[in-house]
Design a protein around this nucleic acid. Sequence first.
RNA 1: GUGGGCGUAGCUCAGUUGGUUAGAGCGCCAGGUUGUGGUCCUGGAGGUCGCGGGUUCGACCCCCGUCGCUCACCCCA
Length: 425
Amino acid sequence: MSEVPILRAPVGTHDVLGPESARWEGLIATFAQFAYRYGFSLVLTPLFEDVGVFNRGIGEDSDVATKEMYVFEDRGGRHYALRPEGTASVVRAFVQHQPVTPWKAWYVTPAFRYERPQSGRYRQHHQLGVEALGTDDPALDVEVIALAWRFFQSLGLTRVRLVINSMGHDECRGRYVAALRAHLEANASRLCDEHREVWRRNPLRLLDCKRDECVAVTGVGPQLPDYLCDDCRAHFAQVTEGLVQLGVPWTRDPRLVRGFDYYTRTTFEFVADALDGAQNAIGGGGRYDGLVERLGGPATSGIGFASGVERLLLALGAEGVTTSLVRRELDVFVVDTTGHDAATTLLDDLRGAGFASDRAYDGRSMKAQMRVADRSGARVAVLVGPREESAGQVTIRDLRSEESVPQHLVARHDLVATLTRLLTK
RNA sequence: GUGGGCGUAGCUCAGUUGGUUAGAGCGCCAGGUUGUGGUCCUGGAGGUCGCGGGUUCGACCCCCGUCGCUCACCCCA
């Protein structure tokens, strides 16, 4: 038809429409409800920030910062990056505005990472998350983790595991990293090809490596839990005990360190066992007690959690949960054959009364309009033609009925009242 | 960045050893007598066979390149 070539969404991005978008609405609305229940309020921050926010935030040596950031220069020569994750921006906003603590905020946002897409991994994906700043009370760790857990449960996910660990605070973590570094140095030749040369850059990364060679090296030698100080041990114990009290099951993974440099003490991840692909982490987070300072603010503790919308949807699909959590079907479809557009005022009344209503356009035949009405999924059709109009009536037809004549006439001025009775029971 | 698989109608796909006007199902549109959907019947619209080059008398089919999709490694949501 057209000579203009079809433009498509960029690599690693995707459009969401149709029934799929209803599932998105449901997820987001459910999460918003949970956040509200737990005392979090919505925070909106810019999609792009000074690159320093992310470099200093998630760590210049992290994979995300070194090779996955969408960086660009604007027309004024400023260096910006599209957010690769949610926490750094929110913490920057905290530093800038210094709200009263404890400050509990939730968000839903796109996140960008330049990497090769695959199942459950995109260049633009979307995260739902919460951040809580101003206290290192383990009760808050428990609350954030419980919020995530309950959220997943409410969605209908059953095959989700919580794995948790503590990385200690700066000091004990530092001692562990030093010990790990020495251990790696002594065994560098036995590491996998990928890490043999680059382990110095970020020793903790090696714990994530699943290759046999690296696992063999890191499986022995210094172990993170042995390096925690008494305070960090106590904190971790209180968190795990709190989870037990709430009936939130967890398992400890002493190798769980996660990819961003800001984590201290509690780290956790939710693994969806229904996903057989490599991308089976549907959420994660942790405490970041030094991050506010790193971004120029006063010493402030914080903890956060984020979940990937796309992966949640994949996990839900894999578990066979197909409900959208939010109803998006029409109540009423207006079929107008008067020839002079009686539908417009009729719809205004219906919509004003709160009914989700739609119509056909372009003066199509009644048969055609009925077909569209049927496909729309509306519960009832309201028909108005010359006969009804002259009598001051409309026909209400039940579109879900199998009967041959599931319809009746009703006075025009009784329409809203009748539908209210019909559709709200 | 590296590697595997795949690109034929809006969607899911068929297309025989390369041989005339490229097909199906679903979807979409219009009809099936005068105002009625979901089933059924009939008809119709819609494709530069991803794109470019090559081999050949002839290419959807073979070769090369390229773009895209997809899966995996790495890492993460």
